[in-house]
Amino acid sequence: MSNLLFVALGSMFGGVSRYWLSGFIQKNFDTAFPVGVFIVNIAGCFLMGIIAGLLAHANVLTNNHRLLLAVGFCGSFTTFSTFSLDNLQLLSAKAYFLLSLNIGLSVILGLAATWGGYYLVQSLSK
């Protein structure tokens, strides 16, 4: 039961953070491109890389930390379900360039950010 509480607590903060940050960013950009969700996804990927690096190399996080931060917070903060909906809306609007840009940059930069966070922790823990 305590595992569920760690996931639930992390999810609550991750979801609220995603809602606030993506909305704040989107309000400050006058574009049809879903920049708020895009930035949150890349930041979440970087954070997930840091957490994975800490779990694998630094021995400072416990399983409860993993549940709270990786499963709960990042799982709720990174919004690939919203990402999919945004892409469906771009597709429906026949905004093919923005659709391709969002998918391509999210996948490539997300992977690069996850690797960057992981590598940062791996480098610092040597």
Rank of each mutant, 00 (worst) to 15 (best):
M1T: 12
M1K: 11
S2E: 15
S2A: 15
N3Y: 08
N3D: 08
N3F: 07
L4I: 14
L5H: 11
F6R: 01
V7R: 03
V7N: 03
G10V: 05
F13Y: 11
G14V: 06
G15P: 08
G15T: 06
V16M: 05
Y19P: 00
Y19T: 06
L21H: 02
S22G: 04
F24M: 08
I25D: 02
I25S: 06
N28F: 05
F29V: 14
F29H: 03
F33E: 07
V37M: 03
N41W: 02
I42T: 03
A43Q: 04
A43L: 13
G44D: 12
G44T: 13
F46D: 01
L47F: 14
M48V: 10
G49C: 09
I50P: 02
I50S: 03
I51F: 09
I51A: 03
G53D: 04
H57G: 04
N59W: 12
N59T: 07
T62G: 07
T62Q: 09
R66L: 10
L68Y: 02
A70Y: 08
G72W: 05
F73V: 01
T79S: 11
S81A: 04
F83A: 04
N87R: 04
N87Q: 04
S92Q: 12
A93Y: 00
A93R: 05
K94N: 07
K94W: 00
A95F: 01
A95G: 06
F97Q: 09
F97C: 05
L98M: 13
L101S: 10
N102G: 07
G104D: 12
L105G: 05
S106W: 08
V107Q: 03
I108C: 12
T114N: 15
W115G: 04
Y118A: 05
Y118E: 09
Y118M: 11
Y119E: 14
L120A: 14
V121W: 01
Q122M: 13
S125F: 15
K126P: 00
